[in-house]
Design a protein around this nucleic acid. Sequence first.
DNA 1: TGTACATCAGTGAACGCGCGTTCACTGATGTAC
DNA 2: TGTACATCAGTGAACGCGCGTTCACTGATGTAC
Lengths: 203, 203
Amino acid sequence: MADDLNSVKTYHHGRLRQALLEAAEAVIAERGVDGFSLRETARRAGVSPAAPAHHFGSARGLLTALASEAFRRFGDALEAADAMAESRAGRMRAQGAAYVLFALQERAKFELMWRYALIDPDDPDYQQASRRAFLILDSASRGEGASASPGSLDPAMAPSIACWSLVHGFARLALDGAFGTEEGAAERAARALLPAVLRHLTL
Amino acid sequence: MADDLNSVKTYHHGRLRQALLEAAEAVIAERGVDGFSLRETARRAGVSPAAPAHHFGSARGLLTALASEAFRRFGDALEAADAMAESRAGRMRAQGAAYVLFALQERAKFELMWRYALIDPDDPDYQQASRRAFLILDSASRGEGASASPGSLDPAMAPSIACWSLVHGFARLALDGAFGTEEGAAERAARALLPAVLRHLTL
DNA sequence: TGTACATCAGTGAACGCGCGTTCACTGATGTAC
DNA sequence: TGTACATCAGTGAACGCGCGTTCACTGATGTAC
């Protein structure tokens, strides 16, 4: 029977955790990160406002899970871009483009990823997901297997940090409307300027 | 009599507008941008919750005024740094250091400056203050008098945008704890890494 | 195969909260004559 | 110099809001025998 896959409304949802994450994603995509509300998320998932607590403990817990998931997909995007390029500079540029593309396409999620007032940055899952993303960037900008760790102040980190800063800054400026606030302005700026901007980095 | 400068509590405040801006600044410095509240601001200024409306219209109005003022001081800091250096590269690096220093020292204000969900980015005063800051950066990275405008997609903008992106990204990553979340970690990272990072920029 | 029971995943009503804004008001100031 | 009056800059109580979380509960599921 396809019944239990479709319309039958049962007391137990079955995949509520995933459904809540999707609903939350939709809420922030529509209303912005600041417009998030746990009750609205529950409403969209068709569930009582108390239900999310069962899976995430609190609103912060849900957002932390969503941010972790976002970081994972972000890492995937960087990895995929990396695999398409060959030279060191080529890898770095491909990743830089993917970085900015992700930020523009998944705007709200990208902002959430860095919103420490709303998530728990000490969550192990979050930590692991965000650290991984940096290591992918790092390995491209220093060429081959990553060695140092994100938190270190080793001067050997400078190239990676410079690369990271450049693309991160460009993405945020674009999101914040520095290149115009009209519809599509950020995307146009990225297309027109990003390649030239990336060329200003010496590795 | 010094009375009217000190303790005498009069019905009319006299400089309430300024007092509210200062109170708001203190609130976000203590509680973070997300912790802002108009009522709390009024409380600190020793005034009823309805008073701010008289000077700023709404909470958003107050925050927009605060962000504009922040951008003005930010521009001043960039300008001062610029005046200390001589070569083009020197000016750019001095401004870059000032940029990051401002972000770290005036953390909450710096974040507010870019928080479009809370302010009105179309406010003329805000526009002018933010545009000015960019033009100072721009004039250093292209050498001498600024020519193009922030919104343009002219490829000649690439050096300025690259410089801007680099320092903006570094600042945000530092604030967001990418270099560690312990007390003072961001400052230490800036001291240890920023000069080397700035050297990766070709002008 | 059937039954008892523990555990799990939801409900829905209620709580208390602090918020931004509104409203009719009043005390102080400044200006015209 | 004194008075009338408009304007300005505050008050403080009230409104309605949506929020996150709590609580005692119940329906469904899975497991042991």
